[in-house]
Simulated assay, not measured.
Amino acid sequence: MLERVEALEAGQKTILAKLDEIGKGIADGRLDNEKRFGAIEGRLTGIEAKLDARATKADLTPIETKLTKVQDAVDTRAATSDLNLLKGKVDALPTTTQLVLFAVAIFAAAGITRFFGH
């Protein structure tokens, strides 16, 4: 029985030693990750600074102005084409004179039919 207890204690010491090694490996990995993340954050900060320096608002203002002009031109063309379509439809409508003459022709045809009819 004593041998079994000693074997269990030896196994427990081996397990504890392995757990200590695992804990140390994890701690070392965290340190490595922190160093890597710090390096990545430094690079990102540098990239952000470069982007901020390149794309200032003064640089974007001419582009914004051009986009506004293009949008206005597109809106104007759309309105012009809509008006041209409407103008074509209105031009196809009969005039007042044509409507009056059509009504007179209907009444004349009715009168002639009545006069010569039964």
Rank of each mutant, 00 (worst) to 15 (best):
A39Y: 03
G111Q: 09
A7C: 11
A78P: 01
R4C: 04
R30S: 13
G88R: 02
A55W: 08
T97C: 06
G23Q: 13
L8N: 10
A108V: 11
Q12A: 15
M1F: 04
G111R: 07
M1H: 03
F37C: 02
N33Q: 15
L16M: 13
R30Y: 05
S81V: 06
K69L: 14
D28R: 06
L86G: 08
A17K: 04
I26A: 07
V5H: 11
V74W: 04
A53K: 04
I106R: 03
T68S: 03
L93K: 04
R77V: 11
R114F: 12
A58Y: 06
D20E: 11
L8C: 06
V104I: 14
G88K: 00
K69N: 12
Q71G: 10
E9W: 02
G25H: 02
A7W: 10
K66M: 11
I22R: 12
A105R: 10
P94W: 04
L8Q: 12
V74C: 09
R43C: 09
L101W: 08
L51A: 10
G117V: 12
T68Q: 11
K87L: 15
Q12Y: 06
T95Q: 04
Q71N: 13
F102D: 14
L19M: 09
K69P: 01
F107I: 04
Q98N: 07
K50Q: 14
I15S: 07
I22M: 04
L2M: 01
Q98E: 15
A49L: 11
A10R: 04
A105G: 03
L67V: 07
